[in-house]
Design a protein around this nucleic acid. Structure first.
Length: 402
DNA sequence: TCGTCTTAAACTCGCGCACA
DNA sequence: TGTGCGCGAGTTTAAGACGA
């Protein structure tokens, strides 16, 4: 509420019987009109009616302004008023099955989807139902069917019957949107210091006669930006960002695709640990230490015990975005025009292909991730180390592409 | 009680549209 | 053309949960 013009003096606090006065005066004026009146008299009466209408409108405007003033006074501007949680599902025609909004939210299907499976949905969502819409190419249909299976897989059994309900689609879309927004904010703000800790950063080139103060000048900042631009795949010759020749995706920061190094850069592991365990976790992950904060983290909430293909692909996308010039995280970069959606699908496809064809690099990739992120679970889930009750999601994902 | 974390929801901004 | 409004997306912050 801020529509009241604060520069104007407060509205008068008297409460005139506006409608009664206005009605009586208008009635008198209308009754005074008769066929015997001269043109001049008719003109004068018309002017009186117009003036009365004008006065009335101004008074109504004043009263509206006073109403806003009163509402502003009633609200303490220093304190935010809070609506009930899950207000977005309030008033929805369709009841949320047998679940309360709290139960539905705690299930967090959207959040879990983003963390473990996919950053975006190829299936229809948010509008009426979660479903695979008709039409599209074979690849698109495969992708949609695959996501539906993934969604079905991570879903609590009690929720599965409701996947095609409107409230479920809304909750899923809300959860995914919220998780993406939180992650983007955490990676670039709260968690940034721990994520880039130990990262090699180019020293500014010292010129002759250059004072140390010059190190902070724009030219040096540009140097750093150019440095990171190339680290996320920019190639001068083509004028484009590469999909795989990316130093920040390789453990040894090579700019040529090397499957034995791909998706093993510490940044990727730090990012996912930051997502599932909070901002302190990245400091320890490369020391093969799983530091669990006291608070309930995403890992605890969703009982995450091993790395998923979606997690690796998403972390790769997050790395590229983190060091890009894009200000907001969306399917396409607002500055660089990088297609993150396409990039995610490509990375995921490559990982699943490797698993499906039982290629050594893919197998070892998961061992590497699980050793660092889940050292207490004695090795990779893929390698048959830790087995848990979270069933065979990865095997299901592998079957997708075999 | 305090620190750390997640999350709901207010806040902010930009964009499109309708209307005078 | 300017203005106001509604909407959506991203950012920020208050509230609540949890464990030592």
């Amino acid at each position: 509420m801020s529509q009241s013009n604060s520069s104007q003096s407060p509205s008068p606090r008297s409460t005139p019987d506006l409608d009664a006065d206005y009605g009586a005066q208008m009635k008198d004026l209308l009754l005074s009109i008769s066929p015997e009146m001269s043109v001049q008299q008719l003109g004068e009466t018309r002017q009186k009616i117009l003036a009365l209408v004008s006065d009335h409108d101004e008074t109504v405007t004043g009263l509206k302004r006073r109403l806003v003033d009163v509402e502003n006074e009633a609200n303490n501007p220093s304190k935010r008023t809070r609506r009930s949680r899950n207000h977005r599902t309030e008033g929805m025609e369709e009841p949320a099955g047998d679940f309360t909004p709290e139960e539905l939210e705690s299930a967090g299907p959207g959040r879990k989807m983003v963390i473990l499976c996919a950053l975006w949905l190829a299936v229809g969502e948010g509008g009426d139902t979660v479903s695979a819409p008709p039409g599209g190419s074979k690849d698109e249909n495969d992708e949609r069917q695959g996501q539906l299976r993934e969604l079905d897989n991570i879903m609590p059994v009690e929720l599965r019957p409701f996947m095609k309900r409107g409230w479920f689609a809304q909750a899923l879309a809300d959860g995914m949107k919220s998780q993406l927004a939180n992650t983007a904010y955490r990676l670039r703000k709260d968690g940034l210091a721990n994520l880039v800790d130990g990262l090699k950063v180019p020293k500014p080139a010292r010129r002759h006669n250059a004072s140390p103060r010059r190190c902070h000048q724009p030219g040096h900042i540009r140097t750093a930006l150019d440095y990171f631009k190339r680290r996320i795949g920019w190639i001068d010759d083509t004028g484009k960002y590469s999909f795989f020749n990316i130093p920040f995706l390789h453990a040894n920061e090579t700019s040529k695709l090397d499957y034995n190094q791909l998706f093993r850069h510490p940044l990727l592991l730090k990012i996912w640990s930051c997502i599932i365990r909070g901002i302190v976790a990245p400091t320890h992950v490369m020391k093969k230490k799983a530091v669990h904060p006291r608070a309930s983290t995403m890992q605890r909430i969703f009982n995450i015990q091993y790395t998923t293909p979606g997690a690796i692909a998403a972390s790769a996308v997050w790395v590229v975005w983190m060091f890009s010039a894009d200000e907001t995280f969306a399917d396409t970069g607002d500055v660089t025009d990088i297609n993150y959606y396409e990039r995610f699908n490509l990375y995921l496809e490559k990982i699943l292909e490797g698993l499906g064809h039982r290629q050594l690099w893919a197998w070892e990739l998961f061992q590497y991730w699980d050793e660092h992120l889940f050292p207490e679970l004695n090795g990779s889930h893929s390698g048959g180390g830790a087995v848990n009750r979270d069933d065979d999601q990865r095997e299901e994902l592998c079957r997708r592409r075999v």
